[in-house]
C-alpha cells in the first residue's frame, strides 16, 4: 500500500472536495475529481467515506476479497471518476471530461491530481500541449510536488524538470504555486484563476506528511507499517491534527 503518497496530497484533496467542487441543490458533488496518481487513492477513500459516498465498512474491507476498494481507484466504485494506477492516464481522461462538459455548455469543472514522477510520462505532455489549444478552461490540474519518485529525489534524478510552472506557462496554461499543505492558500489560488484558462497548480508537498518517520523517507512510498510503527504513526497523526 502507498501511505506516504496519500499523505502528500491529502490537503489538496481536502481543499478540492470541501472547498472547490460545486454542489447541486441536494448537496451532491457536481464537479469531477480524477486521481491521476492513483496510488495515492487512500486519501480519496478517506474523504469519500467522510462525505458518506463510501461507508466505514468499505474502508474496513480495503484490499480484501469482500471489499470493493483496491490499491488503485476503479471506475464504477462510488465517487471514483476514472480507473487510474498506471501513471500518465488521468490528465488525458480529465481533458476529455472537461471538453465534454465544455461543449455541453455546463459549468462543471474537472480537478485532477498528478504526481511529479508521473509528469515524466510522455502522455502527460501530450495532454499539457493539447489542453490550451482546445481552449479548455474548466480543468484544474494539481501537481503534487513532493520531490520523490521510486528511486529517489526528483530534483536529483531529473533536475531539468525544474522550474515547472514556467514550462506550463510556455504551453499556455495559467499557473500558480502554493504550499500544498495549506488548504486556504489552495482555495485562494484556484479562485483567483477561475475559468480564465486551464489552471496548473504546482503544490509543494512533503511525502509522508504528518508522520515524522515517514516524511521524505523513500521506503515509505510503498511500505506497510508493522504494529508498533502503526501505533506510533497514529499517535503522531493525532498530535498533528490537534
Amino acid at each position: 500500500m502507498h501511505i506516504a503518497p496519500a499523505f502528500s496530497c491529502l490537503e489538496i484533496l481536502d481543499a478540492v472536495y470541501y472547498g472547490l467542487m460545486a454542489r447541486d441543490d441536494t448537496n451532491a458533488l457536481q464537479d469531477i475529481f480524477v486521481m491521476s496518481k492513483g496510488h495515492g487513492c487512500m486519501a480519496q477513500y478517506a474523504i469519500l467515506e467522510d462525505l458518506g459516498i463510501l461507508t466505514p465498512g468499505d474502508l474496513e474491507e480495503y484490499c480484501t476479497p469482500d471489499g470493493m476498494l483496491g490499491g488503485h481507484p476503479d471506475f464504477g466504485v462510488p465517487g471514483i471518476a476514472a480507473s487510474t494506477g498506471s501513471l500518465g492516464h488521468g490528465l488525458s481522461i480529465s481533458l476529455g471530461m472537461a471538453y465534454a462538459e465544455k461543449i455541453a455548455g455546463t459549468n462543471r469543472r474537472v480537478f485532477a491530481v498528478i504526481g511529479d514522477g508521473e509528469m515524466q510520462e510522455g502522455s502527460i505532455w501530450e495532454a499539457i500541449m493539447l489542453t490550451p489549444n482546445l481552449d479548455v478552461r474548466n480543468l484544474v490540474c494539481f501537481l503534487d510536488l513532493n520531490d520523490f519518485q521510486g528511486l529517489g529525489r526528483t530534483s536529483e534524478l531529473h533536475p531539468h524538470f525544474y522550474p515547472v510552472a514556467q514550462k506550463l506557462e510556455a504551453f499556455g496554461w495559467q499557473t500558480a504555486e502554493v504550499n500544498g499543505h495549506d488548504t486556504e492558500a489552495i482555495h485562494e489560488c484556484v479562485r483567483a484563476h477561475s475559468n480564465t484558462g486551464p489552471l496548473f497548480v504546482v503544490a509543494r508537498t512533503v511525502k509522508g506528511k504528518g508522520v515524522d518517520f515517514m516524511e521524505n523517507v523513500p521506503i515509505w512510498h510503498y511500505r506497510s507499517p508493522n504494529p508498533e510503527e502503526y501505533r506510533y504513526a497514529m499517535d503522531n497523526l493525532s498530535e498533528v491534527t490537534e
Binding site: F75, A81, A82, G88, H89, L91, S92, I93, S94, L95, G96, M97, A98, Y99, A100, E101, A104, G122, S123, E126, A127, L130
Partner: peptide
C-alpha cells in the same frame, strides 16, 4: 495517447 485518453473521458461524460 491523448487521443485515446481523451476519448475515454468524453465517453465517461456521455
Amino acid at each position: 495517447q491523448v487521443m485515446i485518453g481523451m476519448a475515454a473521458g468524453m465517453a465517461q461524460r456521455g
